[in-house]
């Protein structure tokens, strides 16, 4: 499926981007810009782990949709509940 070399490369990318997240915080960006950058980095890392370490990329797509449904449910709850306060 995937060579150990690629796994290692992904591990390095994950490691570095975690560091970048903290550096962004100290970079003096505006709060919401920093928020956006940091959350996008988290999402990208999550996708990498799911796609390669959990090898979803090489599984039938239905497993990805399954997790996606859970994610949509969680986001629906979070966003709609928070919106109801505004």
């Amino acid at each position: 499926m995937v060579s150990t070399k690629l796994y290692t490369a992904i591990y390095v990318v994950l490691f570095v981007s975690a560091t970048v997240q903290v550096l962004v915080e100290f970079a003096g960006l505006s709060y919401w810009l920093a928020f956006g950058v940091i959350m996008v980095l988290s999402a990208a890392k999550a996708v990498l782990v799911a796609a390669y370490f959990q090898h979803l990329r090489f599984e039938p797509r239905s497993l990805t949709y399954l997790v996606g449904i859970g994610l949509v449910a969680a986001l629906a709850l979070t966003l709609a509940a928070s919106y109801s306060l505004l």
Binding site: L66, V67, I69, G70, A73, A74, T78
Partner: peptide
């Protein structure tokens, strides 16, 4: 399938 439910569990906490 279990992990999908765990996504919602953590989703509830993060929510």
């Amino acid at each position: 399938i279990f992990l999908a439910s765990d996504v919602v569990l953590f989703g509830g906490f993060l929510g």
